[in-house]
C-alpha cells in the first residue's frame, strides 16, 4: 500500500499533465488550473517538513554541544524570528510600506549584503586558483588557456583598445565552438531528463519513494 498508492499517483498525475500540455481546450486548461491550485498547498507541506527537519537537526547539535554549536543558534533564531516580524510587524518587502519595519531592515541590511559578499569573494579565490592551476601542460590545456584569455579580454573594454580582433574572436568562440559543445551537452541532458521522467512516471525508477513499502 505504501508503495502502490504513491506509484499510482505519480502515474496518473504524470500522464494527465503530459496529455494536458498538448490539448488547447478549456477543459484541459481547467484541469491545469485545478492542479496548479493544489501544487502550492503540497509545497507548503514540504516547507513544514523542511523547517521541522532543520530544527530537529540543529536542536540535537545544540543539546549535545557538538562542534560549532553556536552556529546552530544563528540558523534557528532567524528561521523563527523573521516570519514573526514579517507577520506581526509592518513589513515593506517590495516597497509596500512607507515606514520600513525590522523585517525590511534585516533583508536590506543583513541578508542582501551577506549574499552579495559571499558571491563577491569568488573573484579573489578565482584569481588565486587561476594563478596556481591554469597550466599549459598539454595541447588541449593550452587551447583552453588561450580561449579563456581571448574571451576574458574580449569581454572587457580594454580588449577593444588592444584591437577589435580580440572581442570579435572572443564572440566567435562563444557563438560557434561554445555553441556546438553546449548544444550537444544540452541534448544529452534533455534526453536523459526525458528518460528519467518517464521511468518515474511508469514506476521503473523508485528511488524517490525513499524505501517506502520495502
Amino acid at each position: 500500500m505504501k508503495r502502490t498508492v504513491p506509484l499510482m499517483l505519480a502515474l496518473v498525475g504524470g500522464v494527465i499533465m503530459i496529455i494536458q500540455y498538448f490539448i488547447p481546450h478549456q477543459v484541459s486548461q481547467d484541469v491545469f488550473d485545478y492542479y496548479t491550485s493544489w501544487a502550492p498547498v503540497v509545497s507548503g507541506f514540504a516547507l513544514i517538513l523542511g523547517v521541522g527537519s532543520i530544527t530537529r537537526l540543529h536542536y540535537h547539535k545544540l543539546r549535545a554541544r557538538e562542534k560549532n554549536w553556536p552556529f546552530s543558534i544563528a540558523v534557528l533564531v532567524p528561521i523563527y524570528l523573521m516570519p514573526i516580524f514579517a507577520f506581526f510587524v509592518p513589513a515593506s518587502l517590495g516597497g509596500g510600506s512607507e515606514f520600513p519595519g525590522f523585517f525590511d531592515f534585516m533583508y536590506t541590511r543583513v541578508q542582501v549584503p551577506i549574499q552579495a559578499t559571499m558571491f563577491s569573494m569568488l573573484a579573489f579565490y578565482i584569481a588565486s586558483a587561476a594563478f596556481r592551476a591554469f597550466r599549459a601542460k598539454s595541447l588541449l590545456a593550452t587551447v583552453l588557456l588561450l580561449a579563456a584569455v581571448i574571451v576574458m579580454l574580449g569581454q572587457v573594454p580594454v580588449g577593444d583598445l588592444l584591437g577589435r580582433w580580440l572581442p570579435d574572436t572572443g564572440q566567435w568562440i562563444l557563438r560557434y565552438p561554445n555553441l556546438a559543445a553546449k548544444r550537444a551537452i544540452e541534448l544529452g541532458v534533455g534526453f536523459g531528463m526525458l528518460a528519467t521522467c518517464l521511468k518515474i512516471i511508469f514506476g521503473v525508477e523508485r528511488g524517490w519513494l525513499g524505501g517506502a513499502g520495502r
Partner: peptide, 29 residues
C-alpha cells in the same frame, strides 16, 4: 563597473601568464 572588470581581468591574465612562466622555467612540468 567595466573599468573595474577590465583591470581585474588583466590582473588575472597576468597572474596566469606569470604562473605558467614560473611553472615551465622552474622545470616543474
Amino acid at each position: 563597473g567595466m573599468d573595474v572588470q577590465s583591470l581585474a581581468h588583466i590582473v588575472i591574465i597576468l597572474l596566469v601568464i606569470l604562473g605558467n612562466i614560473a611553472f615551465f622555467a622552474g622545470g616543474f612540468h
